[in-house]
Amino acid sequence: MSKTEKSCVGEDSTITNKFGDRPPCTYSMKIQSLSELKTLFSCTDGYKSRTFSSGKYNWNLVIYPNGNKKDNGTGFISMYVELDKTNLTSTVLAYLTFFIYNKKENKYLTIQDVEGKQFNAVRPVCGFPQVLPLDTFNDPKNGYVFDGDQCEFGVDVMVPLTNWELVSFSQKPSNPKFSWTVSKFSKLKDHCYVSPKFLVGGKNWVLKLYPKGYSTTYSKFLSLFLHLADGETLKAGEEIYVGTDVRILDPVGCSHVSWNMKVWYKNVKGWGCYEFASLDRLRKSYLDKEGSLKVEVEFEVVSTTKYSS
């Protein structure tokens, strides 16, 4: 640690001290001879650990066993983290939790700044000048110095993720139902018919209807599929969960032909059924007076994903 560097702890810091089990620890350091460490490092020098990594950055734990006099740490154990500023081009936010082992309690005194610290090339060092009074720390009766002349320090450096995704499952999303009237069904000649686009769960969808079956294998059936509309793309690795009820409506009653579908959209853009309903059954009972077929889809649940970039 350069002698001209100071920590960036301010008066607005929110610090919590407590005893507890070991927190998630990025790095720990056990001192075999505290008295020798104190002799080697004065009140203006700190002992720097070997380099460790967290959040794609390199760090060092710095301990002042006699307190950091230059940072108003006289009479206290002072603890800092130093960021390796080599090739650093931006500010790094990190949340610091220091700890000191107490063998008498078999617990760890933790010192945490809940607001986080901003590290950069100008200020690569942050920490606490007044962690624990030296009178308390040095007295073996208190448990911080144990087994003759040993002690243990540690730190957790948590760097918030810059890449993240938030997945939510919306039950009964807004405008969950879409209806489509296919006119003159019995006279349709094309292989496939596509409905208008409709928006559900932040994505545009279409129904694809095959009035003479998806292929000759299914020529006696209506095939029906729910597709992501043209232009809708999934990010690499993105998946969408969909729970829907797809149905052909009974024009004179409630004996709808219904299929409940629960699927993940990932490698394919469409899901459906090759044998949704027999054509004989549809022509006999499901065409209205004008010969139209009414198709409906209702979303019960659909997942949405938000990304940081």
Rank of each mutant, 00 (worst) to 15 (best):
D149L: 10
V62E: 09
F185A: 05
F198D: 12
F128A: 02
P196D: 15
N260Q: 13
K235S: 10
C8T: 13
Y47M: 11
K38F: 09
Y307Q: 03
P160S: 10
Y57T: 04
S303I: 03
F225A: 07
S255Y: 15
K104S: 13
N267M: 07
G20E: 14
K184Q: 14
E11N: 11
Y218C: 06
G253A: 15
G253I: 08
Y64H: 01
A277E: 12
T244S: 15
Y101N: 09
E275M: 11
T51C: 12
P65T: 05
K187S: 15
L222V: 08
N17D: 10
S258V: 15
N102R: 08
K38V: 07
F137L: 06
T14W: 12
V263S: 12
L34Q: 11
V297C: 11
K266T: 06
T26M: 02
K262G: 07
W164A: 11
L287F: 09
K212F: 07
S215F: 03
T86S: 10
I15M: 00
S219M: 08
K3Q: 06
V122S: 13
D149R: 08
V9Y: 04
S170G: 05
F137M: 04
G291W: 06
L226M: 01
G243I: 08
Y47G: 00
W205K: 00
R123M: 05
V167P: 02
P173Q: 09
K18R: 15
I77Y: 12
K306I: 09
P23C: 06
S292T: 05
Y47R: 08
E11L: 11
V62A: 02
L293H: 03
E36G: 01
V295T: 00
T16H: 13
G213V: 02
E11P: 04
K104I: 05
S308K: 03
W264H: 11
P176T: 13
V131L: 06
L282K: 04
D113K: 01
M261Q: 09
K69F: 05
P211F: 06
Y144S: 05
S28W: 12
Y80P: 00
K85A: 14
T97W: 09
D45A: 07
S90K: 15
K30L: 14
E5T: 00
P196K: 07
K294V: 12
N142H: 14
I77T: 02
D147A: 06
K189T: 13
N260H: 09
F146P: 01
V125F: 08
N267Y: 13
D113I: 02
